[in-house]
Amino acid sequence: MSYTWQWQLIWDFRQVFVRGVEVTVMLTWWALLIGLGLGLLLGLMRSSRLAVLRWPAAVYIDIFRATPILVQLVWIYYALPILLGLQMGNIVAASVGIGLHAAAYIAEIFRAGIESIDRGQSDAAKSLGMGYGQAMRRIILPQAVRRMVPPFINEFATLMKLTTLGSVLAVNELLHEAENLINNTYRPLEVYTIVAVVFGLMIYPFIWLSQRLERRWKTRG
């Protein structure tokens, strides 16, 4: 039995994929922004000397890492509005949910990166008279960021793939659009193949970039 691939049909529906990619990129972008900002803050809090900062960050990180993201998304979309009395659109809810989730992992990447820098570096910065902020910005983070790039790209790829969970909130991201298309065309194999290829094309350049950066920084020490 042989299967006849019908690529022409897919090509006719290319606009559907373009729309899906747009929403996926938008979700990724906002989730990333939230994840990075909050993740940096939580990471700094987590490696603070002050227990009042360290504790809340640790609790947040553990909660988000110990519960399924699907539950988090549904909870943020349906339960949070009841508690806070504010209504969020499904795209906003998905961005926020994925962003809050990613923040927990990104915080751990920041913390591990910061703690991987030898204590002598902050000693040297302090002995010159630098404050905490200056030492972080100019000495610790630039070095830590280099070590964080590989795990961070990894997390970025995960995050982009997690945007497909937006479909449970009926967000029209790539997977959701694709599933609608399958319902209309009954061509799941072609459609899923394209979805895989498109995700691959979106994610691979970052993996390539991270490998290049790693190599370049290695030669400069």
């Binding site: 002598g120 000693d123 040297a124 008279g129 630098m130 404050g131």
Partner: peptide
């Protein structure tokens, strides 16, 4: 910090800033 700035310190393990050149290390402070 004001006091630290007036006391130079040199460490057993050098602790130069590895992402900066010699000149950049020296002008940093």
């Amino acid at each position: 910090r004001r006091i630290r700035a007036r006391l130079g310190m040199v460490f057993q393990s050098f602790n130069l800033f590895p992402h900066k050149t010699v000149l950049e290390n020296v002008i940093e402070g």
